[in-house]
């Protein structure tokens, strides 16, 4: 009998080969990597009370105080998504345990934590061309001076809502909703075309005549 166990698959497993091939072709310029899924919870707690401090003590690291910023946790990151909303990740813990652990600390202060591990998937964009690539479809200022280490932003990349996380000048993380991940991966591959060796702006290859089709009669000048 066939094994009916549901094996967890990366939401972008079908794009892995394409991304690896592109990164190999653009070695030293750009690299697009899929990151392994991590445990993530969405924390809602009133920032005016003791809730954030209690959660910070429980997860072993400070929660970011400023808007659009992130801090490092022992095995993950804490990203501020809104005035009373944070995203806390942990690469080691099981999702259920992580949710329970954060929720236990938050519940005492009227807060709540919900497991959102399956909500987003993560791409890592590295290389000297990383920021230029992203800025071709993103309206926020991604220059290192205004988007330095420690910043994050929820914004639009192409037509999809993404969460950008700045690690270093040439190292950014891109969190995207799983259902938009395929679109974003394809968009990135398309946008990276201009960094390929031999790219000529405005060049369109001549359409090849297809066998078996008669050439279309010329309609003359319109």
């Amino acid at each position: 009998m066939a094994d009916r166990t549901l094996a967890p698959a990366h939401p972008l497993a079908s794009r892995r080969t394409t991304l690896t091939a592109l990164s190999d072709e653009l070695t030293g310029v750009l690299s697009l990597e899929l990151e392994n899924p991590v445990a993530a919870v969405d924390l809602r707690v009133d920032p005016r009370g003791d809730g954030p401090a209690a959660v910070a003590a429980a997860v072993g690291g400070p929660l970011p105080a400023r808007p659009d910023s992130w801090t490092a946790l022992p095995a993950g990151v804490a990203l501020r998504l809104g005035p009373d909303e944070w995203l806390l990740t942990d690469a080691v813990a099981r999702a259920e345990d992580w949710e329970f652990h954060v929720d236990e600390a938050a519940a005492a202060h009227g807060g709540t934590a919900v497991d959102v591990s399956a909500q987003r998937t993560t791409l890592r964009v590295r290389g000297p061309a990383a920021r230029e690539l992203l800025s071709s479809g993103c309206a926020i200022d991604l220059r290192p001076a205004s988007f330095p280490h420690g910043r994050c932003a929820q914004t639009l990349l192409g037509q999809a809502a993404v969460l950008l996380v700045a690690h270093e000048i040439d190292d950014l993380q891109l969190l995207v909703r799983t259902s938009f991940a395929g679109y974003v991966a394809d968009w990135l591959v398309d946008a990276a075309t201009e960094f390929r060796p031999g790219f000529r702006p405005g060049f369109r290859p001549e359409p090849q005549p297809q066998p078996g089709l008669r050439p279309q009669p010329s309609r003359g000048t319109p």
């Binding site: 009133d46 920032p47 005016r48 954030p52 105080a65 400023r66 808007p67 809104g82 005035p83 009373d84």
Partner: peptide, 14 residues
């Protein structure tokens, strides 16, 4: 920001 919603504004973030 709407009155009565939790959380500070950008300037007054704790």
């Amino acid at each position: 920001p709407l009155a009565g919603t939790p959380g500070p504004t950008r300037e007054a973030a704790p």
